[in-house]
Design a protein around this nucleic acid. Sequence first.
DNA 1: ACGTTTTAGAGGAAAGTACCACATTATTAG
DNA 2: CTAATAATGTGGTACTTTCCTCTAAAACGT
Lengths: 256, 256
Amino acid sequence: MYLPEGKKARRQRAIVSELGLSPTVRTSDLARRLGVSVETVRRDIEELTQQGLVSRTYGGAAGRQLGLQPAYQEREALAVEERDAIAAKAVGLVKAGDVLMIDSGSTTARFAHALARAAIRVTVITNCFAVAQALAMNDAARVIFCPGDVSGREGGVYGSETCAFLKGFYADVTFIGASGLTVDGPTDVETGATWVKRGMIDRAERQVLLLDSSKFGRRHLERICPLDGLSDLVTDRKPDGALGERIAAGPTALHV
Amino acid sequence: MYLPEGKKARRQRAIVSELGLSPTVRTSDLARRLGVSVETVRRDIEELTQQGLVSRTYGGAAGRQLGLQPAYQEREALAVEERDAIAAKAVGLVKAGDVLMIDSGSTTARFAHALARAAIRVTVITNCFAVAQALAMNDAARVIFCPGDVSGREGGVYGSETCAFLKGFYADVTFIGASGLTVDGPTDVETGATWVKRGMIDRAERQVLLLDSSKFGRRHLERICPLDGLSDLVTDRKPDGALGERIAAGPTALHV
DNA sequence: ACGTTTTAGAGGAAAGTACCACATTATTAG
DNA sequence: CTAATAATGTGGTACTTTCCTCTAAAACGT
């Protein structure tokens, strides 16, 4: 229609499109609907999986969920235990009736799930689809979503609209994630995300950083805030060396 | 911890929680991780499916995607063909460079997918997760998401924040769905959704209603707008009787 | 403490998938 | 037009899951 691509490409687009509407499709169904053999569909799914467009399942394929990073599988598999422990610990910092701001990120998404399980009555302001999804099912939580430009890669919204929106609220606690943490403070790779994190930090009484220990000492493009700008750090291991000392000396409470 | 529920409930919550993080889980994996038999997990998934919390798949379960109605399966299966045809037709109303507002709903979600496939350069303002997800992968589209209260059931955001946000924009075309259409105009069941639809209609030059023919003549709680308030109606069959005459006589263009 | 109900596990037949190697059919390039 | 290459279909085996019934154990109320 638009590009004279082969029928293979069209078929694969049809699969991805189908996946956007129902969370899961079965290989046999697709084969029937597309008028090709099961083997062909399997090979298509194989390719799409390698491109990261769908994720393969037993009887077929599942669509990438909005809010889950593409490389989620590997990135996450390594530190599931640690992150769950961090998430559980962080839930302890939440009281009934609190207003929370929750940043985008895989660790914060885990935290949102733990929070949903705990069924504490809270109001959550977030820019992250995964967080919204985690808490949406829960009647105990009211979720306010931020406006902004949708980033499929990050699974959230960013930009000036997002930052401006945050200024209209005041929260008890902000929970953020980061890609790295040094004595200078937490750092991240994405500029857009960094501004949102700063915005959330500014509008809350307490600022909690959720971080697994593999991020210690890693420095990235942008610093989010000074180390003293955080009221709490929740992690899975006590940081060593200069970072450990600096935290011990500073105002930031450490939760392991 | 919070409620002394049985281990069954805890197990099922663990499943739902797991599903929030990875788009799909396998029965056998869950059985191993939870330390129970496969049969037990299958029964759990069965129950959760009936509650609409997860959707069952061949080898396990998939998480409900944010933006897909719970009863999606049945509601959609009936009219997939019709809706795709409607969606394809509606894409024809879009020009490169247009600014669009897209409402939440299953038909509009289909439309968003068709739009993504067409790869037309557009800016889209939406309050619907499914729409955002459909277009997020597409580099051709810039997607601006509205703020508001998250409704897990509807798969979008609603409320005064949403309506206020819409007032800050002006679009070339608005695409909305509805639960019913009578000579008085389109109607819907949800009050919150209705206000958002109205807001989108007010801020656009053209107002397009996407509707499959099964909705003709059905009236619901709230009227969205008068019939004359719509510039276009895209559907799969010419409406008969009074409704058909009324449309032919009015200013609304009919696309079949 | 007792009996009832709920919940979990075992086993086996039936069905559906995966996976592999090879044949066949488009598609493309020269 | 023909040869090379990519894409697709076929057949058969091994594996996984489903689904059923029945039994064991745990939880529950009285």
